[in-house]
């Protein structure tokens, strides 16, 4: 077995360890403790001081982006569920009225973040209002899901 890159002590160590087994591995790990010891303190998470103030990355703006990403994804999933049900000729998983209410609730949360285009929110509300009357087309629901999914918000990857 030839190491691909043994340019660093860590890489060399990993290669050596990969050839050990059982008690041999234990001994090798013990012998190399001084190298892994460097990783221990470095692996301390950035927030392990826990009680201190959050660092700059944990700003309200950044947190709102995360929140908006979650909401956008939830709205997209609801529209997709509605489209799936329509496609299969079934009733909505949570019932038409409840699904509409859930959507309106999510859209209200979305509006509170001020990070969603108002035209998209208005479109979403219109569709949520039509859901109980089964007055939405399949393509319209899929398109709405796609629009929410495509928003450039944190974690909105599905």
């Amino acid at each position: 077995m030839t190491p691909r890159n043994t340019s660093t002590p860590f890489a060399r160590l990993l290669f050596e360890l990969s050839r050990c087994s059982g008690a041999e591995l234990e001994r090798a790990l013990a012998d190399s403790a001084h190298i892994f010891a460097r990783l221990g303190p470095a692996a301390e998470p950035r927030c392990s001081s826990a009680t201190g103030a959050p660092p700059a990355i944990c700003s309200l703006e950044r947190a709102e982006l995360e929140l908006a990403g979650l909401i956008a994804r939830a709205v997209a999933v609801l529209f997709d569920q509605a489209a799936d049900a329509l496609e299969r000729g079934e009733d909505l998983p949570a019932g038409r009225r409840e699904m509409g209410a859930l959507l309106r609730e999510e859209l209200q949360c979305a509006a509170s973040t001020h990070l969603f285009p108002s035209s998209l929110l208005a479109h979403g509300r219109k569709l949520a209002g039509r859901l109980p009357r089964a007055a939405c087309g399949l393509a319209t629901l899929r398109d709405a899901a796609q629009q929410f999914r495509a928003l450039p918000l944190s974690g909105n990857l599905c």
Binding site: R46, C47, P54, A63, L67, L70, C109
Partner: peptide, 16 residues
């Protein structure tokens, strides 16, 4: 994990 990333995401879930 980067704990700050986890913290931010957990906060968003909590708020929601």
């Amino acid at each position: 994990f980067d704990a700050d990333r986890v913290h931010l995401r957990a906060l968003a879930h909590c708020a929601r």
